[in-house]
Amino acid sequence: MSDLKLRVKEMIIERLKLEGMTPDQMDDGAPLFGEGLGLDSIDALELVLGIEQVFGVKIEDEAAGMKAFKSIQALTDFIAEHSKA
């Protein structure tokens, strides 16, 4: 697992208080919302704030969110792409 992906997973677990979950239990390809982790809109806002705080990357709008929150892999790629300022 890449270092960034591990940090992304740890941020998700911490920010959303997914107690009992470990990074290696999280499926890289599963959707974050709906199925997969089954997150809701409050979780989405928490993730947006966490990503900004931890990685300095802003998710400006819902279109960017749709792309970034497709999966853990997509979110990792989104952060990698946007943190190269």
């Binding site: 809109s41 409050i42 989405a44 806002l45 947006v48 704030l49 998710i59 969110g65």
Partner: peptide, 30 residues
């Protein structure tokens, strides 16, 4: 205001009286 996304906003609030904090909370408003 702490941040907003998709119509949802997170706020941090403090109620205080004469310099003393009585209540602190984060609120989510939709």
């Amino acid at each position: 205001a702490e941040g907003a996304f998709a119509g949802l906003m997170k706020l941090r609030g403090t109620v205080s009286c004469e310099g003393r904090e009585l209540c602190t909370a984060a609120l989510l408003v939709k």
